[in-house]
Nucleic acid binder design. Structure first.
Lengths: 242, 242
DNA sequence: CGCGTTTAATTGTCTGACATTTTAGACAGC
DNA sequence: GCTGTCTAAAATGTCAGACAATTAAACGCG
């Protein structure tokens, strides 16, 4: 980890990479303390500012945490599921918005992945998951709910569906696909008729999962996919005409 | 974006957050230039070092790029698919290794997601994808191939399968699940018998995709899932006994 | 022994300086 | 007018040194 060529370009990036590699390769364990900033500056033969910039880069990736005081310093950080979720969602959302991914592509990806969860969710969903889904369905039926709140509730419903599979890795991977769709979904105007259809399909999905009927759940999800696609197309057309 | 309370803790993190929010919310467009470091220092009423640490945090997340020289500065960066892939894979791998995710969970997630791609891939795979899969199968059959190389080829095969769906969002989301499994897969010792079975299933998958037979592909993938799970269990047991 | 107090270590911030890189503009020569 | 060269300015990258803030351990005292 102490290597550093005489390449005088982007010193702080090089140092960050050296330390990052040491962490990723497993040379450093969780909660292990890095040398102090002054020591690192000596080791790499750079100033403390440069070391600090390198450490900030690592902190931005949640790879280290810093602590002030006598026994303080930079420590290797355990990446928590919650942080990874948040990071994944941010990146996914940015990727979609900056690259102008069309609604159809994002929608297809999202529902294909969700349908992969359905059989597992039918098998393992707990009463808690079912209760969350029912509660969100109830919320979606409330009169006067704004389109944005309706979308929020939609995400929460689908999140419960995914979490029902009881596989945190699956939940983590899906979070990106589901949440990154939200900005696109927010472009849609949901009429009462639209909402009724969606609520009906959500109810069918919840029922199927409750009965542990994987085939019914899959069928309802397929219909929901198709329906969401048509809503998206209409919204895109309306937007294009404007 | 110019807001900054008198909260004197973690100034550089606060400033990074302010700028990040401005980028994510869409207030700043791709390739737009941020104010210079000195200007930002004045605006936020902090020193240039603090601003620089904030900017390094954003650079670490690929949100900005910096350029030296007269017309240089920090520019909002377009997040490319390749970078997002790399970032997603790194995070997923770390998440799995740091949280000691068991083989079964990771494996289940990976194959569930892959099976979601199979129908789309059967519909849309190009001759290129098929050629890649055949080439990797051929490579997997080579005598004297190390376990690690066999895993590499396995990943390449499955990557081609996923890419065959022709949906970049799907490919992106899947990359994390497939590649993050590799460290776990590398714990397995693949005997010739094991490899023969896997190669047979890969061939069945490639054949099914070539014939655009989604059901066959799904069945072969299901068998591959089950087989990989037993291999993983054996490897974990062997590791536990050691 | 228990409880403040001091002290040392460490990160966080500031200031000012210099190095390096890159562009735009001035200027000279034809 | 055109072209090539030179210079100055602007911006990031790095450095050195200082001080503030925070924290835990060592110390001293009753």
């Amino acid at each position: 980890m102490k290597i550093d060529p005489k390449n005088k370009a982007d010193l702080s990036a090089q140092i960050a990479k050296a330390i990052r590699d040491a962490i990723i390769s497993g040379d450093m364990n969780v909660d292990e303390r890095l040398p102090s900033e002054s020591e690192l500056a000596d080791q790499f033969d750079v100033s403390r500012s440069t070391v600090r910039e390198a450490l900030k880069r690592l902190a931005a990736q949640n790879l280290i945490r810093t602590q002030r005081g006598a026994t303080g310093g930079a420590f290797v950080r355990r990446l928590s599921y919650d942080e990874a979720y948040a990071q994944h969602i941010t990146t996914s959302t940015l990727l979609l918005s900056m690259n102008a991914v069309d609604f159809e592509t994002a929608c297809e990806a999202r529902f294909a992945l969700e349908r992969a969860c359905a059989p597992l969710s039918a098998k393992r969903r707990t009463p808690d998951h079912l209760a969350t889904m029912r509660a969100e369905i109830h919320r979606q039926a409330q009169p006067g709910l704004s389109d944005e709140r309706f979308c929020d509730s939609d995400v929460a419903f689908h999140r419960a569906l995914v979490d029902g599979a009881g596989n945190p890795v699956l939940s983590y991977q899906l979070a990106g696909a589901v949440e990154a769709m939200q900005p696109l979904m927010n472009m849609i105007t949901f009429t009462q008729r639209n909402r009724d259809v969606i609520i009906g399909l959500h109810t069918r999905i919840a029922d199927a999962l409750e009965m542990q009927n994987s085939a019914d759940a899959d069928e309802a999800l397929a219909e929901l996919t198709a329906y969401t696609l048509t809503l998206g197309e209409e919204a895109m057309e309306a937007r294009a005409r404007r």
